[in-house]
Design a protein around this nucleic acid. Sequence first.
DNA 1: TTTTTCGTTCACTATACATGAACGATGTTT
DNA 2: AAACATCGTTCATGTATAGTGAACGAAAAA
Lengths: 252, 252
Amino acid sequence: MDNHLSSVKNSCRLLKLFLDSEKEMGVSELSRQLQLSKGAVHKLLMTLESEGFIKQNPANKQYALGYTLLELGNKVIKNHNLADFTKPFLQRLAETTQELVCLCIRDQLDAIYVEKIDSLHPIRFNVEAYRRFPLYATSAARAILAFQDEAFIGNVLQEKIRTFTPYSLKEPEEVMERLKRIREQGYEISSNMRNVGVTGIAAPIYDADGTVNASISLIGPTDRVNPSLDTFIQLVVETTRDISFQLGYRNK
Amino acid sequence: MDNHLSSVKNSCRLLKLFLDSEKEMGVSELSRQLQLSKGAVHKLLMTLESEGFIKQNPANKQYALGYTLLELGNKVIKNHNLADFTKPFLQRLAETTQELVCLCIRDQLDAIYVEKIDSLHPIRFNVEAYRRFPLYATSAARAILAFQDEAFIGNVLQEKIRTFTPYSLKEPEEVMERLKRIREQGYEISSNMRNVGVTGIAAPIYDADGTVNASISLIGPTDRVNPSLDTFIQLVVETTRDISFQLGYRNK
DNA sequence: TTTTTCGTTCACTATACATGAACGATGTTT
DNA sequence: AAACATCGTTCATGTATAGTGAACGAAAAA
């Protein structure tokens, strides 16, 4: 808060408000949520609109996100060569297992699915790509979190833990225990924690220097995943091992 | 420039610089391009980074776009229901023609492809989605531009015209003439103007109130498009007519 | 080694920003 | 229809803040 540009910070916060809103928003609503005067919000919007970051609907004077953000977001993926690089591996894994396969990365204190191959089963589970979620929440995320240093894990777990189902992990200690098991066995498997009836299998991707900032996970209905559990685990682990090797990681 | 927030404007300009850069950028380079002091740029970057809009590579201290922009960009598509709505129409058109089919929209003074179905031919042409380009540059864009009011068209054509091939339109008068023909025949067809050896066929989508802000285009190698030209034109025009009708547009 | 260029920090002053009230327009309630 | 509420937008004002430019150590280039 100290050496930050307040109006820039406000504009960032304003833009992010649209992430959790399904509709357009007006000056008054934004000013309430940001706790800023209407005049200030209006000026923010005018500036952002002139740069294409915001778009006003002439019909109802309400505001929405602008297409320049689409350009910028697309550029982020392009810059992220890990997604390109791992795509063939994901495709092969998806083909042999016929289940949803995702590439998950860490960004700051959050996890994001940046690539996925959908299952072709008529009954299939889906995840939301490009949207942040907590690093303790899914198997893919925990497969990354497990290999961060202690201080970082402490940081993540000190915020109030969000639960998604009655089976979600609730206490930091539960998560810590799970992370320990992930480190021991090299992969994570969990059911019902993010969505009931859904099982995920995930394993970490190592960089050349041995750090973990990404993982691959296989996600599907528990009924269908369980019968092939051992094969699926092996396939996921092998895939991440291959990728890590290609990235220059050499397990002693 | 008057009632705009300068630091917000600077931050927007800074972010956009990354669109035309293939690599990460440092404080000095950004400060040169923005004509701002290094100190100011550094403070901008610190603020943007704290909000996830920018990411610093610890290895070389260079900066790149952050994943929050990925979230925001994705939200823009979700909000844009025209893309969802037209997708089935696009898919049908792509299936019958086996060529690249795109949905193009207008945003301010630019055009953007917001949806596309790739051709399955081994030899196929591709376009860059989610990236702005001038409204006079492609058949899809001109199919939109032709139906804007005169003042707007004048605005677009008064900026220096960018050419992409030796066959691109160079003079405002040439464009105007072409737009007239589009209005007369209801569709646009052009070859070699954006890419040599490529032909595009495009027709406008009308809103319920009769305004045009989107178009559909079929794009492919001239050798393959020409033999079926008349059928393709008819199919494109019919598709846009169907969509316009569904949107509530009633041609007298 | 020397020299340049880098990212980062800091004190300082002009100025640009957030405020809060007032405006007309729009839409809701009585 | 009339009264009311709420909307987006505008504006003058005083203060907090943004941009400057020099100085720093670190890292690369010569």
